[in-house]
Design a protein around this nucleic acid. Sequence first.
DNA 1: GTCGGTGCTGGTAGCGCTGTCAACGTTCCT
DNA 2: AGGAACGTTGACAGCGCTACCAGCACCGAC
Lengths: 367, 367
Amino acid sequence: MGRKRTKSGKIRLAEVAELAGVSPITASRFFRNPEALSLAKRTRVESAAKELGYVPNLAARALASQRTEVIGVLIPSLTNNVFSDVLRGIYDASEGNRYSIQLSNTRYSILQEEKLLRLFLAQKPAGLIVTGIDQTAESRAMLEAADCPIVQIMEIGPDPVDMMIGFSHYDAARAAVAHLFDQGRRRIGFVGARMDPRVQRRLDGYVSAMKDAALFEQRLVVTTATPTSVTLGGALFADLLAREPGLDAVFCANDDLALGVLFECRRREIGVPDQIAIVGFNDLEFMASAVPTLTSVRTNRYEMGKTAATMLIEAIDGRRPEQPVLDLGFKIIERQSSMPRHSESRPAASGAGATANKMVALPSGHD
Amino acid sequence: MGRKRTKSGKIRLAEVAELAGVSPITASRFFRNPEALSLAKRTRVESAAKELGYVPNLAARALASQRTEVIGVLIPSLTNNVFSDVLRGIYDASEGNRYSIQLSNTRYSILQEEKLLRLFLAQKPAGLIVTGIDQTAESRAMLEAADCPIVQIMEIGPDPVDMMIGFSHYDAARAAVAHLFDQGRRRIGFVGARMDPRVQRRLDGYVSAMKDAALFEQRLVVTTATPTSVTLGGALFADLLAREPGLDAVFCANDDLALGVLFECRRREIGVPDQIAIVGFNDLEFMASAVPTLTSVRTNRYEMGKTAATMLIEAIDGRRPEQPVLDLGFKIIERQSSMPRHSESRPAASGAGATANKMVALPSGHD
DNA sequence: GTCGGTGCTGGTAGCGCTGTCAACGTTCCT
DNA sequence: AGGAACGTTGACAGCGCTACCAGCACCGAC
């Protein structure tokens, strides 16, 4: 392989123990439960380990202890910004403790998820983070039978496998539509892509809110199974507009689509919000910076990942949370794109950068 | 933990061997090197394994064989879109074979990188993917001494540790500036954030191109160590404009900044490209969809990740690539934002969505 | 003074798999 | 026909660590 072959710089636990003048078992305990040692031995082992640069062999530990210190994470996409925030939270929370993250991408396929789950479970993970609540029956059964704590993330539902953290996409969508009603909008379109279960529930929320107001029409809904993108937002909006020229607002299932809609409006010289209001979903960073600034539903993605991993680790360590289901909520961040029609839609020419920055500094979404 | 405790559904290799009527070693070989078995035994072991639902115990395998089937990946950011594309490539390439990805986030700190490297190396990974060429001396030494193939990604340099795949950020930046020269621009500003080594090399490329044309001035450069964002792009551009009102183009170190600049121009009613041309870097999806569409330097991020992982796995399996350093190149994707001044800057009102889509379908950047 | 409890420590015995090497049967060559 | 060469198989001996349980010292309680 062209690479040097080291003798595998093996410093074993036994060597540490020898240098410290204790038995290997005592040394082992030092790494797993230092409080169980007398102070004298603890310091002896500690300095011996440091002196030798000892690093435990995880494979041996896993084999002997019949469990790993791996947290399996199943997410449906690596591309979606939403998941990169969640992941960052998970990785941040797992830092500094002994657990390591094993990530797998289900690509929005519950069959793939089932396969990966089987793989994970076979290695006896310390814990599992899975996305959503729509598993196959088989997956569900495996999760129920799993001998480790499990957190379902991204949304909440009535029947948690174990723990659960997220928010109601249905309620969030209803709130977004209610906001548009408040702004005097009536003919509100829905634009959605990928149509995974969570987007579907956003659609359901939109439909129910529209029906409650007796404003629902099927032609107001444009969706596709295609993965989301900014460009796609523009294309779907074009479709929507062709079907319903009297449109006065669009609720987009995510922010990329919303940005695409905004660009398409600009292309067609449709005033935002004067002619059409736009509301996105997730409140990605650019929403506060667009012109006009774009209203969105803020979701606490980083916090979700971080809390999920923290809860999971606590549970692994035997400290189960008092509250296994956590609703992180959401927050409508009202910006220019959904202001009432007669308000001025464009900010003063200069100093607008400051305006955008001010939007970013709005009260954070931890509701 | 409130979870059922299974008896740990252990089907050992020995049981498979017994059912198949062979020795455990033969069964073991079946999973590692099936060609070494006679066809009869191979099928016997195969069906026995399937019948019992055998899943190998990776910990035991790692312990006995003194090596893992883990590929360590060190990247500086989980937030940055650029890395999510690279990661996706890496994960895609690692699918279907027996290697699993272990990801760690250095957060743009080479000290953190060194720490993580030490951690990884202690577990004897099968291979390593590290970002960039700017390691600490200590890290470099560890990499040199490592007993596994290593791929450095994201850029190429003169002194690979082992394998290397990327492109020259310096050349790419020079090409971007040359493109702006071609379009008749002279007072070209540079906007950069985070200023990690690769952004720094883009700046170096910009500076050298500007100096070659005797057009360089320090005040044309605005940078910050702050992490990048769309909003930040607007703010940095505002700074730049205050320093140099005669500006006629901006080269942005990434696309988020470029989008921020575009929005800021819109806010200030500065025509793009009539007054100011904008060029971004990476060619994220939204660049083709913005209004006007935004010129960018296309980089082959997904391919980079995928190829890196593929090369690495091949090398692990003993098939080292003939060419250990791979330059994936880049490509200037010329769009409206950098058209010459006198051309019409806005497309026809309708059908522009199609235009944007056409841009997306341009010949791919495999130079 | 003996007893049981508590805190700490150590010995024994694997966890499930694979590296090494020897041995076997078969084929091919001379 | 004999032997070497090859392909295939199996026995043995751990990999480095920890679970389990026993043992020791020391304590206070009866």
